[in-house]
Write a protein that binds this DNA or RNA. Structure first.
Length: 105
DNA sequence: GGCGTGACCCCAT
DNA sequence: TATGGGGCCACGC
């Protein structure tokens, strides 16, 4: 089976826009929601995202609870997350299970 | 059409 | 708990 029109990136972006403020998700969950194991590709999609104002890619963290990376730098990412009410300590999100967002899946 | 890259993940030590 | 090594997939050249 091949990928059709909406490139992988587009699908990722669509999912990201579903994430409410104050909630976060992981690269793996996104891939899972797309029925694939391309966690790597998900990260790539984020890296190529220019619409930082439209696509909340800062709400995507690693599965192990670490912040991960960000186009504008990890510091900026942490700042944004804290602003949304998350508790971050040593590059890690606390109470992860309470702020994690599941794509209704 | 093949190869390297990357905002990752998992397991073993 | 921390570190290292291998595997995974889509994208661009």
């Amino acid at each position: 089976m091949k990928n059709l029109d909406p490139s992988f990136n587009e699908k990722c972006y669509a999912l990201l826009q579903k994430i409410p403020q104050g909630k976060v998700t992981t690269y793996k969950k996104i891939a899972k929601a797309l029925n694939t194991k391309a966690y790597r590709a998900v990260g790539n999609a984020m890296a190529k995202n220019d619409q930082l104002m439209v696509i909340p890619c800062h709400r995507v963290i690693k599965s192990n609870g670490e912040i991960g990376n960000y186009r504008l730098g990890v510091t900026q990412k942490k700042n944004l997350l804290e602003k949304e009410g998350l508790v971050i300590k040593n590059n890690r999100v606390e109470h992860l299970s309470e702020v994690i967002y599941r794509f209704e899946n």
